[in-house]
Design a protein around this nucleic acid. Structure first.
Length: 877
RNA sequence: GCGGGCGUGGCGAAAAGGUAGACGCAAGGGACUUAAAAUCCCUCGAUGGCAACGUCGUGCGGGUUCAAGUCCCGCCGCCCGCACCA
């Protein structure tokens, strides 16, 4: 029946049910086919999906569905990053058990994701909070422990004394706990850590091999790892001033060439030497305490200010024992980097020059530009307090004078390596990394328990494999601050697996980044009895296309890369497996305009109406009739109310429409602006496709399966060319994730098909049928429900999801004639249509014969004619 | 401060160094309709011209090239990371 609107909600539910029943998207492992593992970053089960999820999962789904039509075994799984703080907050605030809260959220979000019609293999679903998942994580942990990749160390943490918990850096706001508001203390605490630094070099080097990762992400990781080459230099302390038992101070420097410019040394407030000095001096102790207090983000307030205090200790210059340099404690020295101590060369380092000026220390230029006027300028700047850290030539540096800094570096390094202090070389070459080991201890309930026992006799004992999982107790309480596992009356009491004496369980749980560092591997065999099934992992990994937000550019992706190596080292993955994600794509956000009422409160997009355009565009608040302010376009957020609920859109326009819109407007790596009119446009397109298909099915096109004519009219051939060009281009653009361009090409094919029908040229019905069928097939990955419905309407009783991407007829991709632009002196003057294989001479002749070209030449003789076949003709006069 | 990215119509955007603005949105005009919605057709960078057609135009200033949105140099603006890393 024609003229009936396409009913999205009804059809969408129908096809979802059919796909479900027929297990259309169940993963296959047909060995005769190539594999493709498509993965989107799994969500935290907050309870509701948002437009960002819609965009992320639609992109992955288009690729997964497309790859299926191209004959791949596709693995496209989904799961839940289900441990974490919000569940515990819900327990505290609303007295719901974290498990109940989480599983309810998973159920709700799963049903929302299902309403999007994603081609997911739900039989592989995992939730990281499920003991079936985390039991394997505990196995992995123990294996890493045995290999020395997991260990305990004391590290500094942000301690919230009211909530009695450790806070992440981002949970410390202006030095106070984000929830309690208490002043956060910097405390030393025994923490579990993973030895990611053991792989620093490799994680850095292998970045080069990740050619299908965004350059930006590789760069961010490179900076994060922060490799620098330098020298460890031991300075002898002057015995007259040094504390008893301290005879030397070791520093790390990347600029040994500037050693003759040294004017002070500085150590971190937590450096052992600073601590000794603090014991003997009240003012030093006070200074160190002060530094510790501003440890976290208060640093921002006085960030520029370099301050310190003289310890009275002197160090001997390694190249001149008569040269004594004062040792300071300084607030800008980090204990975690290098040795927590430096030598200061003020002329070459901005921090050092500020420090030196403040404390009246010498500032001797040692590196300056080779020639004037740059040299004079640099010297003047140093005099004014701006360090020079460029290349140039050494001065004031004794035997180094005249050398380039690089040569000076080598000279000094060679010299100091030979010099001895207490029978050891004064200096050794050292490669230093900014990357630190990954602290995974969290004093929380809702995380994976660290499966070890503390025994007074045996020390740290891993829980044996057959006793895993160490499961979270169900009856924890959340009404008071602190770690629920630690205060649980019985949970932590156990017996030592080794000596069977009473012992205590570890009550720390793992950072949730651990959970997400190996889930992609678990998906390859989610029911395996071991953490990883080597055969499945070998087949499916690496992930062929990983898609997610740029916010995970560093931590999640780096941890996953580390974990993959750790899993190889512990025998869970093949030895050759290093990189988990072969290709990475980071998609942009979904953003929306913001609106404010005249009273200053935020308004929902549905609470305003608009008129006018451009600068004259005005918004009015519907409820009050008052003008509303149109604010900036920002990431959708609850607080600014610039939200669009996927449920509402799906209920109103259908999932296909929402999918189409998020694919259509912007390049996928850029932010997409959600506009109501844009969605409405997508909705119109859905109806337009449906009308087109109805017309074709009802006689404007040939019948299904009708024999292909031997000859086609020019009009039919034209349409066929458009169709086959689209097949090629849309396929290429989906593979390249240029969805917005693919969408535009589908619009063009739709327009071409519709106008062919409207013109009703002779002998076009077969071509119209072909165009329409292929159009529907190409729409399949993007708007799968609509496409299935159209496929059915076109007379098929098979699933479109099971069909192959149509083959292109190569001959139709090549036009018999081509239109060239004809330029005179680079300016376009006319066009010329010539046979595709026309000779250069013929083209030139035809171009020069064009009336417009003759006119443009204005009697001048062409000096040169450039003919680029199938492109352009440029007449140079 | 360091690093990276981006600047193209009223808007989102296309464009292997080769006809700038495909495609969509918005807007304007028209058809159909008692009317509206829906749909269909036309116009739509600026400017001059009745028109044919011309001139200018991809943040700004230079350069390379037969030819530059695209490549190079120097600015300006916006956005995003990282930030005392010795």
């Amino acid at each position: 029946m024609a003229n009936e609107r396409y009913n999205a909600p009804v059809n969408e539910k129908r096809w979802q049910k059919i796909w479900d029943e027929r297990q259309t998207f169940r993963t296959t492992e047909d060995k005769s086919k190539p594999k493709c593992y498509v993965l989107e970053m799994f969500p935290y089960p907050s309870g509701r999906i948002h437009m960002g999820h819609v965009r992320n999962y639609t992109m992955g789904d288009v690729l997964a569905r497309y790859k299926k039509t191209k004959g791949f075994n596709v693995l496209h799984p989904m799961g839940w990053d289900a441990f974490g703080m919000p569940a515990e907050n819900a327990a505290i605030e609303r007295k719901i058990h974290p498990a109940k809260w989480t599983y309810e959220n998973i159920a709700a979000m799963k049903s929302q994701l299902k309403s999007m019609g994603l081609s997911l293999d739900w039989s592989r679903e995992v939730a990281t909070c499920n003991p079936d998942y985390y039991v394997h994580q505990q196995h992995l942990f123990n294996d890493m422990l045995a290999k020395g990749l997991a260990y305990r160390k004391t590290s500094k943490v942000n301690w919230d004394p009211v909530d009695q918990t450790v806070l992440a850096n981002e949970q410390v706001i202006d030095g106070r706990g984000w929830r309690s508001g208490a002043l956060v203390e910097s405390r030393e605490r025994m923490q579990w850590a993973f030895k990611i630094t053991a792989y620093a070099e490799e994680l850095l080097d292998a970045l080069k091999t990740l050619e299908k990762w965004p350059e930006k992400v590789r760069l961010m990781q490179e900076n994060w790892i922060g490799r620098s080459e330098g020298l460890m230099v031991r300075w002898q302390l002057d015995a007259a001033t040094a504390p008893v038992g301290h005879s030397e101070l070791e520093i790390f420097t990347t600029r040994p060439d500037t050693l003759y410019g040294a004017s002070f040394m500085a150590v971190a407030p937590d450096h052992p030497l600073a601590k000794i000095a603090a014991e003997n001096s009240k003012s030093i102790a006070e200074f160190c305490d002060e530094c510790r207090r501003m440890g976290t983000s208060v640093a921002d307030i006085e960030k520029a200010e370099k301050r310190g205090i003289d310890t009275g200790i002197k160090a001997r210059h390694p190249l001149d024992p008569t040269w004594l340099v004062p040792v300071y404690v300084a607030n800008f020295i980090l204990m975690d980097y290098g040795t927590g101590a430096i030598f200061g060369c003020p002329s070459g380092d901005q921090r050092d020059i500020e420090f030196a000026r403040r404390y009246g220390l010498p500032i001797v230029p040692v590196v300056v530009p080779k020639d004037d006027p740059a040299r004079t300028q640099a010297l003047a700047k140093i005099h004014e307090g701006t360090a020079y850290d460029g290349d140039g030539v050494m001065i004031n540096s004794r035997d180094l004078n005249g050398m380039a800094p690089k040569a000076a570096f080598e000279t000094i390094a060679a010299k100091l390596e030979k010099l001895r202090l207490g029978n050891q070389p004064v200096a050794t070459r050292k490669i230093n990394y900014r990357l630190r080991d990954w602290g995974i201890s969290r004093q929380r309930y809702w995380g994976c328990p660290i499966p070890v026992v503390h025994c007074n006799t045996c020390g740290i004992v891993p829980v044996p494999a057959h006793e895993l999982p160490v499961q979270l107790p169900d009856d924890a309480t959340f009404d008071v601050p602190g770690n629920p596992l630690d205060r649980h009356p019985s949970w932590k009491h156990t017996n030592c697996p080794k000596c069977n004496q009473p012992a205590l369980r570890e009550t720390d749980t793992m950072d949730t980044f651990v959970d997400s560092s190996w889930y992609f591997a678990r998906f390859t065999a989610p029911d395996a009895k071991t953490p990883i099934d080597a055969t499945a992992a070998k087949y499916w990994l690496p992930v062929d296309q990983y898609i997610g937000g740029i916010e995970h550019a560093i931590l999640h992706l780096l941890y996953s890369r580390f974990f993959t190596r750790a899993m190889s080292a512990t025998g869970h993955l093949p030895k050759t497996m290093a990189e988990p994600f072969g290709a990475l794509f980071t998609q942009g956000m979904v953003v929306h305009e913001t609106y404010k009422s005249s009273s200053g409160s935020w308004l929902l997009p549905t609470e305003v109406v608009f008129e006018g355009e451009g600068d004259a565009r005005k918004a009015t608040e519907i409820a009050t009739g008052q003008p509303a302010e149109i604010g900036s376009i920002e990431k959708m957020s609850k607080s600014k109310k610039n939200l669009v609920d996927p449920d509402d859109i799906i209920a109103h326009y259908g999932a296909d429409c929402a999918r189409w819109f998020v694919l259509s407007d912007s390049p996928p790596e850029r932010d997409v602006i959600w506009t109501e009119s844009g969605v409405a446009g997508a909705g119109r397109f859905v109806q337009r496709i449906w009308r087109l298909v109805e017309e074709v099915a009802d006689g404007k096109g040939a019948k299904r399966g009708e024999k292909k004519p031997a000859n086609f009219s020019p009009e039919a051939t034209e349409l066929r060319r458009t169709t086959h060009k689209a097949l090629h281009a849309v396929g290429q653009n989906i593979e390249g994730l240029r969805f917005n361009v693919a969408v535009a090409q589908l619009y063009e094919l739709t327009n071409a098909t519709a106008s062919a029908i409207a013109k009703a040229a002779p002998d076009t019905t077969w071509a119209v049928r072909e165009a329409t069928e292929h159009l529907v097939q190409m729409l399949g990955p993007m708007m799968p429900h609509l496409a299935e419905t159209c496929w059915e309407r076109l007379g098929y009783n098979t699933l479109l999801a099971d069909t192959s991407w149509p083959a292109t007829e190569q001959s139709l991709l090549i036009d018999a004639s081509v239109t060239l632009a004809v330029q005179v002196n680079g300016k376009r003057r006319d066009e010329l249509t010539v046979p595709r294989d026309a000779s250069l001479a013929d083209i030139e002749k035809a171009a020069l014969a064009l009336e417009s070209i003759i006119r443009a030449l204005d009697g001048k003789l062409p000096k040169k004619v450039i003919v680029v076949p199938q492109r352009i003709v440029n007449v140079v006069a």
